[in-house]
């Protein structure tokens, strides 16, 4: 077998998880055959741990109050300049996740093969078709889904001819509309979605996972739905009697 010489850089990159699969495979093989290589890699693992520990987290949190205040003052000044149009910084955010996490989460979700649709034309155009295809998104407009959204309480699961729906929570948005977060699993895949009630229940946001098993929904998906609801000014979820009452309200014709 060919003798490879591995430079320190390559072995370090292996220890740091920076090698591509092919190269990492070669290093693994060499490591199995040559204890010296394994030892060199172990040293890089150890040095990383040592350095990390030496710069402990605790030392980093030591920000002088004056510095913190100065930076906060800069931010406040800029926000004041930006005026009253203040966009997504709604104080009644329903989760602890900062508004700023929205964009990285979006990129992340895209990277793992999830598809986010801030609906509008796309779903609206499909709603009239009435013939759901294998596309999990298409089922969101099915009448069975609409019925379930109109009557099921949060936490309730229901089997549908084409899958299973679970309503997760109910919110009153800033504009007064009633919206529900739910999960729809079909053989074609799972979607986390939000639907709001007008004349009927209409999906306004959907995050479809390509994974047909429907068992794995990345946590970032929940973040995205969170962010979406937050942007719409959703407050705390409506619970128990409040939810029942909201669902009984007549649909808003608008």
């Amino acid at each position: 077998m060919a003798q490879f010489h591995f430079s320190d850089e390559i072995l370090m990159a292996f220890a740091d998880g920076e090698l591509d699969e092919q190269m990492a495979g070669r290093v693994e093989q060499a490591m199995a055959n040559d204890p010296a290589i394994a030892r060199r890699i172990a040293e890089f693992l150890r040095s990383r741990r040592l350095i990390r520990s030496a710069y402990a987290r605790s030392t980093a949190s030591d920000v002088p109050p004056a510095l913190r205040a100065a930076v906060q003052a800069q931010i406040d000044r800029l926000e004041a300049q930006a005026g009253p149009q203040a966009p997504s910084g709604d104080p009644i955010s329903r989760s602890a996740s900062p508004a700023g996490r929205w964009r990285p989460a979006l990129a992340l979700a895209a990277g793992i093969g999830a598809l986010a649709l801030a609906t509008g034309g796309y779903l609206a155009g499909r709603q009239g078709l009435g013939t759901p295809s294998a596309d999990p998104i298409a089922y969101l407009a099915a009448p069975e889904v609409s019925r379930a959204l109109g009557s099921n309480l949060s936490g309730q699961e229901q089997d549908l001819p084409f899958g299973r729906i679970r309503v997760i929570s109910t919110y009153r948005m800033a504009d007064g509309s009633l919206c529900r977060e739910f999960k729809l699993e079909t053989s074609a895949g799972a979607s986390n979605a939000v639907a709001c009630r007008g004349r009927d229940w209409k999906t306004t946001f959907a995050l479809a996972s390509a994974d047909a098993s429907g068992s794995y929904v990345p946590s970032d998906g929940a973040d995205l739905v969170d962010s979406y609801l937050q942007k719409g000014g959703a407050g705390q979820p409506l619970l128990d009697a409040a939810e029942v009452q909201a669902l009984r309200e007549p649909p808003r014709l608008r």
Partner: peptide, 10 residues
Amino acid sequence: PAAIGQELVG
């Protein structure tokens, strides 16, 4: 700027 402000503080 407001959007990155709080992250910056963090």
